[in-house]
Nucleic acid binder design. Structure first.
Lengths: 224, 224, 224, 224
DNA sequence: CATGAATGAGATTTCATTCAT
DNA sequence: TATGAATGAAATCTCATTCAT
């Protein structure tokens, strides 16, 4: 069996990574991210990771303990990246509608640019978030995100621009959902609908649609 | 490794399934669905499926060829179920807004009631829809769904109830997205936000939110 | 490293052990006993056991779970053998001195005939009896042995043949010690003393010596 | 597997053993003794030894060649210690019975105080004394011990205190056996008999028992 | 149709030892 | 002298699949 694993040709071991621990570690992490997001945790092969990274298999164990430890490192690294990018948005300087639009588009673009983030979330949910629950580092990362959205909503409501009573977590889940599902399920969706959802113009159109849905929802004063 | 596979106690082999081909086949399919959706395709164990089904391992091969064949059967069976349920909705008899509300709530409820459907889509997307592409049966299933939505939109636009120019596929993806993402990612979302997204009252609230978002979007005449 | 492992040529797989589970299980157990007693638990190789047994390596895991499970089975099997042989001695029919002589000589002869028993005890003590503690089966095996000795001592004391106040456990340990140490340490002892302790006439002489030491101790009425 | 290896926390590397060859060597030897006696030769880990010793792994190879060389050094060092302690007993000044008692008690106490000596003998016997045979140094160490016992026996026989015809080697083996087996097998013995053989008062009682057995044997004039 | 013992290939992990710095 | 990253070989264990009955 195992007919559906994704294989990749060996990365020409750039300049033979001798005696540069930091670089070796990073190479392993990068390779593991690629292999795990392509094949899932149980589908990922330690051999393949080592080969991709151009290092001896033994090194994975040296740096990360075991396959699970490596996965956890990948997870933490990947989560930290998006949350740190979000924090850099500086939405507080924009007016509420522009701030929200920026957040929505950023989120959408991030999903497009980082398919490994999507895959990893998918994998981790198949694990019932078992690893995520172990990582304090990650769990503490999300207060700022919610706070950011709360401020936008309050300012929008105060200026009579947005409806009131919106739950920031519910809203964020919707913002993420509209982009995440489209990207993470693009293979089956493209197949059943017979359209190339991956095409650049299609992606741009989708981004506008998401902004439209979210802002329309926020701007209307009365519930439907 | 393999610390995160989900195991289940053996299902009391109901009256020893000897000499009832149809029942044996169904038992295998049910067991395979459970095992695969719990652990993914590469995480699923043939032994575990046989044990769950209470049949001899050899039977899997007899009825389904190999693990991949079994997976394909599970996929087809699961997809056919939702599409057939949708067709039974008879939306054409309702007014556009009620019809849309019914479709949205049906979809949401279906995701709640059929976690195996979500898991299977997730798994199949990790496979880049390789199996789905092979199954003509499934691909031909989706014309009616799109047609159904198209009719609702046209009737709503004609009656000045809905905005015009809405792409039915884009809309369906959004309807599905708002529920799918919430459910499929509930483990990580619950963890990072520290809330129990699975609680019944939370699920009901989410359903209303989704209806709200979709109908608000459709009813507004001008783009935001 | 690992220069001191004991290897053995493959046992001609007698009549190819096809489809005879009981025989396969027994063959594995026999091979495991040989390999583990020759090399210790950590020195024993699963591959070597499979080869000795003439079965596929996979079978060890099929029948015994893992290497530790196999070791536990070996331990239980080996312990049960000596205790059952002891019970068959029927010492109650002999007069106390003859009974004691018989027990001592039996114990000594058993150690000569079953070097695997000695090796296994040695191995298990290096494990701090971790496996033995887990096995209720074995722990419950030793009441009869102590009882048997107690009866002999009482009858001997009642007949003024043996001294009084002898602790049966302490005595049994001495009986075992005088033979066990000689056999289990024969390699180093032969080396440092430059004598072949393994020679048959030497073994017989040792048996008489042990009987002499134990019976002299028991028969004397006053403490030295 | 490897569920039974004994691990220990790192010994605070006392003031970083840089540039003190003698100290480094001694630290390695001490650590190796601990690791090997705890886990056997094949169970001992080079990494663990280095960590225990607080030195770089490369140093083991520098000083001792390889793991086997290190083991041999441990063996020689440990054997030399007991033989040198024995020589210091000065038994020739005591009357035969007191001399014998002193030797017996010394041997017993030495086993109590030096569990690493017992473990090492056990390990070396599992190796069939392969290393010991290579070490002339050790083999030449034992003449004096036998001589010492011979003198005691002769003096005792001459004074009509001891029986005649006692083989000093056979006797020494018995003296050692009565203590060695009790200590080396204390884990399994404590388990099967359900008593704490390791308790201080139990150890003292055992010492008296051994003296009793040996002296009773020697003092009786007629064979049993 | 049904069983479950058996297999071979390959997965993860371990370990003594060497090498560049 | 000292470091610890790096290695290759080999160890334990897993898994889809086949085969004798």
């Amino acid at each position: 069996m195992e007919g559906s694993r994704v294989k990749t040709t060996v990365k020409a071991r750039t300049a033979s990574l001798t005696r540069d621990p930091e670089r070796t570690r990073a190479a392993i992490l990068r390779a593991a991210t690629a292999e795990i997001t392509a094949n899932g945790l149980s589908g990922a092969r330690v051999d393949a990771i080592a080969e991709r990274a151009g290092v001896n298999k033994r090194m994975l164990y040296h740096y990360f303990g075991d396959k699970q430890g490596l996965y956890l490192a990948v997870l933490e690294h990947t989560y930290a990246a998006i949350r740190s990018a979000e924090t850099a948005l500086n939405l507080e300087k924009l007016d509420p509608a522009d701030g929200m639009r920026k957040l929505v588009l950023f989120t959408w673009q991030y999903f497009i640019d980082h398919p490994e983030f999507l895959s990893l979330l998918v994998t981790e949910n198949m694990n019932r978030a078992a690893y995520l629950k172990k990582s304090k580092q990650i769990r503490n990362l999300h207060g700022p995100l919610v706070g950011m959205i709360e401020v936008l909503l309050k300012r929008g409501a105060a200026g009579k621009l947005f409806r009131t009573g919106v739950d920031p977590i519910e809203l964020y889940i919707s913002i993420a959902a509209l982009g995440f599902f489209y990207m993470s399920n693009r293979h089956t969706l493209s197949t059943i609908f017979g359209e190339k959802l991956n095409a650049p113009e299609r992606l741009e159109k989708r981004g506008e649609h998401i902004v439209d849905v979210i802002l329309t929802y926020l701007k209307v004063s009365e519930k439907a």
